[in-house]
Computed example of a mutant assay.
Amino acid sequence: MVAGNHCTVTDFFLAGLSEKPELQMPFFLFFMAIYVFTVVGNLGMITLIGLSSHLHNPMYYFLSSLSFIDFCQSTVVILKMLVGFVSEKNLISYPACMTQLYFFISFGIAECFTLAAMAYDRYVAICNPLLYNVTMSYQIYSSLILGVYFFGVLCASVHTGFMTRICFCKPDVINHYFCDFLPLLKLACSSTYVNELLILFFGTLNICVPILTIITSYIFIIASIARIHSTEGRSKAFSTCSSHILAVVIFFGSLAFMYLQPSSVNSMDQGKISSVFYTIVVPMMNPLIYSLRNKDVSVALKKILQRKTFM
């Protein structure tokens, strides 16, 4: 009977990044600029890859998929955050909260395994170049891309399904700027044991498996690069990997800091800062990282700009 009374929560309040009124407008302008940069960068990368025929290979199809994921992830998180900065009460309905959680999980997990797939693609390209077209055929890389989204949707469905079974208590203030696992579970007045097990299991699976795949791939890649006698050859091989390594370190570092710490150590304030990196900073930086550190992308961009100039 008591639990039933607690299950009548229809709305949540998001605490946001800061409760200081004088910071709301500066934060709004700052994150609006980040969102615009993220949208332009990621949609621009997708368009560039689509228009440049010499970028039509598995490496850039994976990159295009990553840009789509980053665009969607930032949209899911930042738009509601921006509304919160200019609203008196940063309110989110229960269905909207569960929807945001669902898509956040889907795209977050998809990004984890996309980065792993990109590392495997680089391993095949550098360590087995003669078999690359066979190993990374259309059927294989398209299956990898579809598998990434399927697994993201599957995990999100399980997590969100069990989250909807929880009864939430008053006060209904989520100490975060979006609906995430850990701050939501802190509001629960029913057992969260199964949810915590799921977070531990899927968190370990979705972080450790991609990281192990990436580390294993790069061990073989570094060993293969070391056997290249030409300095130019080593530099070219490493340049195709360095941007990916940088993106991996930033994304998985912040993700692990948030979800693989004991709950007694992790505070929500630290969690907010960590979350900013993998939900906002990484989607903004990825197009910049891959365009500045990738000669093929830079050349394709120059050709497109020159073509527009002469038209």
Rank of each mutant, 00 (worst) to 15 (best):
V2G: 15
N5L: 09
C7Q: 13
V9F: 04
D11S: 13
L14H: 02
L14W: 01
G16A: 10
L17Y: 03
P21M: 01
P26V: 03
F28A: 07
L29A: 08
V36R: 02
L48C: 03
G50H: 09
L51A: 05
H54W: 15
L55M: 05
M59Y: 09
Y60V: 12
Y61L: 14
F62P: 13
F62W: 14
L63G: 05
D70E: 13
D70P: 04
F71W: 01
S74V: 03
T75K: 00
M81N: 05
M81F: 04
L82M: 00
F85C: 03
V86R: 10
V86I: 15
S87I: 07
S87F: 03
K89P: 02
N90Y: 06
L91Q: 11
S93Y: 14
S93V: 13
Y94S: 12
M98I: 14
L101M: 09
L101G: 09
Y102K: 05
F104H: 08
F104D: 08
I105N: 02
I105L: 04
F107T: 07
I109C: 04
A110Y: 01
F113Q: 14
T114K: 10
A117L: 02
A119K: 07
Y120P: 08
V124I: 06
I126C: 05
N133R: 15
V134F: 10
T135M: 02
S142K: 08
I145N: 01
L146P: 04
V153K: 02
C155M: 12
G161C: 03
M163W: 00
R165K: 02
I166D: 00
C167H: 14
C169W: 04
D172M: 11
V173F: 04
N175P: 04
L182C: 12
L184M: 14
L184Q: 12
L184R: 07
C189S: 13
C189P: 10
S190V: 06
V194Y: 05
N195R: 00
E196M: 02
L197Q: 13
I211E: 12
I222P: 01
S224H: 12
A226Q: 04
H229E: 14
S230N: 11
G233F: 02
G233D: 06
S235Q: 14
C241N: 04
S242H: 09
S243A: 03
I245K: 05
L246I: 15
A247Y: 13
F252W: 01
G253C: 08
G253M: 08
F257S: 15
L260M: 11
S263D: 12
D269P: 08
D269K: 12
G271P: 06
K272V: 09
S274R: 11
V276H: 04
V276A: 09
F277W: 07
M285F: 12
Y290N: 06
S291C: 06
R293M: 05
N294E: 12
S298R: 14
L305H: 05
Q306I: 07
R307V: 03
M311L: 09
M311S: 12
